[in-house]
């Protein structure tokens, strides 16, 4: 799986100020049946974007994406199922980063493994983003900073430096793990003794 390199991103946002958004909301189970990684974006947040007749819900902000690349959501984003399809769907829809004040573990990993940057900010900063609707956001991965463009407010976020490098260079873990195969074999042999 290759993905775009991530360095600095300036973009408008789509805001979903709801807490505990689980992966069943992000991509309902009935859309997980295809065996490829592509095309999940059209079903992203399906039950929030379409009514039971399949008609688009006009008031859903999610239906008005004009090329925004940053999704901003309430606390504890991505809890629930381990489905990587959630990260694929968000990426496929056009997002390159998700900002929240808290992420579920598996989602965070899945996102990072697919070039989607989870940016964890303070509750306060998240609130500031929600209050400044319409402002662009700048995410600077090498500097680990996030800025509300209209007000200049900036906060730093944390990311494992290994993962930061992977994202900046578009690497994934598997190549590295394969390069360790010899050590893995040694480990196995030592255990047998």
């Amino acid at each position: 799986m290759s993905f775009e390199k991530f360095t600095i991103l300036k973009s408008g946002t789509i805001n979903v100020p709801i807490e505990n958004i689980d992966t069943d909301q992000i991509i309902p189970a009935r859309f997980l049946k295809t065996t490829s990684r592509e095309g999940f974006g059209k079903n992203l947040f399906y039950d929030w974007r379409y009514d039971s007749q399949g008609k688009m819900i006009r008031s859903s902000e999610l239906n008005e994406n004009k090329g925004e690349k940053i999704l901003v959501a309430g606390r504890n984003f991505g809890c629930g199922s381990s489905r990587e399809h959630a990260a694929w769907a968000i990426y496929d829809y056009g997002f390159r980063a998700v900002i929240s004040s808290f992420f579920a573990d598996i989602f965070k990993n899945n996102a990072l493994n697919n070039g989607l940057l989870p940016v964890q900010v303070s509750d306060n900063f998240l609130d500031r983003i929600f209050k400044n609707i319409g402002s662009d956001i700048i995410i600077n991965l090498p500097e680990r900073s996030v800025t509300i463009y209209s007000t200049g407010e900036t906060e730093h976020f944390q990311i494992n430096s290994y993962k930061q490098n992977c994202l900046i260079n578009g690497f994934d873990d598997i190549e590295y793990l394969i390069s360790c195969r010899h050590e893995t074999e040694n480990f196995e042999n030592n255990r047998k003794k």
Binding site: M1, R37, S82, R83, E84, H85, A87, D105, I106, N109, N110, N113, N114, N160, Y162, D172, D173, I174, Y176, L177, I178, C180, R181, T184
Partner: peptide, 22 residues
């Protein structure tokens, strides 16, 4: 613990995963 599909691929390919101690 549960993993995503990329990690399923890593385990199939190497029987290992990169993990940070929780």
């Amino acid at each position: 613990f549960g993993v995503g599909t990329s990690e399923v691929e890593m385990v199939l390919a190497t029987q290992t995963l990169l993990q940070t101690k929780p």
